[in-house]
């Protein structure tokens, strides 16, 4: 089977949707050259009218895409840096997201906001290393964080086809990953539906993005002492509560590994929902960035502020020792 790279999967998804639907177009900075390695070659195939290099005016071109979407287009915007999402939060959270409700259903804004390389990129420091998926989930944006090349393909295709705005944050730590896949079997994946990446019976680990692969590795390492189930929500929002409950009600134990800041992050929400609505036999644990973290530059400090697989091992062992 051929090996599919994570970024190549994103390119393939864009290319397939551009070919399938003439309303799809791409806006962004340096996208004709393809600086982020996702849009390379698209302008040669689809032309500069549909692959539009923009000035460094993130706020304007984000709402520009809203205007195009209100007129029937399905724009994809590529952002080179996750922190740019703070700059365009008004245009996404306060404009695009609110149009459907505020107009009483008259308007839809099918824009996809794609950040290839979200989260820490080693050495890129404070303003290039955010992982803002919890922020978008909090305000209700459909938000996906694909954990593998095949998921990246399937979720990006679904995001583009969705009638609502969708934020697609692909982890920088996944960018160089590869997967053996049958290319003919690549298919859209439904938004809002998670999947069990590894079956187990003793504890459920919720992992997002690049942590899914790490959690599966940890589960294999611990296989002799504990049976770990790894649940990949695929979509951060809307979260697949049904899928999670099915797992947690079986295992009775829960650990979340989440690249958000701790306070009001995805991990907090998952733990709270499980505590309220699911059968837990031991206190849950979450592994996150610190409260309000700003990732420091030096490698040792950057690493210290990010969730780590060793912490996951410890948390799994702790949760499995404890009883309510």
């Amino acid at each position: 089977m051929p090996k599919l790279g994570y970024l190549t999967a994103l390119t393939r998804a864009l290319s397939d949707e551009l070919a399938r639907d003439p309303d799809v177009c791409v806006f962004g900075e340096d996208i004709r050259v393809g600086v982020a390695n996702v849009t390379k070659g698209l302008v040669q195939r689809f032309g500069p009218e549909r692959i539009v290099d923009t000035p460094l005016s993130e706020q304007a071109f984000t709402s520009f895409a809203t205007g195009a979407a209100l007129s029937g287009h399905r724009p994809v915007i590529e952002f080179q840096i996750p922190s740019l999402m703070f700059l365009v939060f008004e245009q996404i959270a306060n404009q695009a997201h609110k149009f459907s409700l505020m107009t009483g259903g008259q308007a839809k804004v099918p824009v996809t906001y794609l950040v290839p390389g979200s989260g820490s990129r080693t050495g890129w420091a404070g303003q290039h290393s955010d992982q803002p998926y919890s922020l978008f989930a909090h305000v209700g944006l459909k938000t996906v964080v694909p954990s593998s090349p095949a998921d990246a393909y399937g979720l990006l295709v679904s995001a583009i086809r969705d009638d609502d705005p969708v934020v697609v944050l692909t982890p920088a730590a996944s960018s160089m990953s590869f997967q053996s896949v049958n290319l003919d079997e690549l298919a859209p994946l439904p938004l809002g539906v998670g999947h069990v990446a590894r079956s187990g019976t003793d504890v459920t680990v919720v992992a997002v993005g690049h942590f899914v692969g790490q959690a599966v590795e940890v589960a294999e390492e611990l296989a002799d002492e504990v049976s770990v189930e790894v649940f990949d929500p695929r979509t951060v929002y809307p979260f697949d509560w049904h899928g999670l409950a099915e797992s947690v009600n079986r295992t009775g134990r829960l650990v979340v590994i989440d690249d958000s800041n701790r306070f009001c992050g995805l991990g907090a929400e998952v733990v709270a929902a499980a505590a309220e609505e699911m059968r837990l036999v031991a206190p849950p644990r979450r592994i996150t960035r610190p409260d309000g973290a700003v990732l420091p530059f030096a490698l040792e400090l950057d690493r210290a502020a990010q969730p780590h697989r060793d912490q996951l091992v410890t948390a799994i062992q702790q949760v499995c020792k404890e009883n309510r």
Binding site: F64, G67, S71, Q95, M102, A107
Partner: peptide, 20 residues
């Protein structure tokens, strides 16, 4: 395409609609 509660927010939306 709507009145808007944020000052200036309609300008890029109209510009994008003009592009369309």
């Amino acid at each position: 395409l709507g009145a808007n509660g944020i000052v200036g927010a309609g300008a890029p939306i109209a510009t994008g609609a003009a592009w369309a």
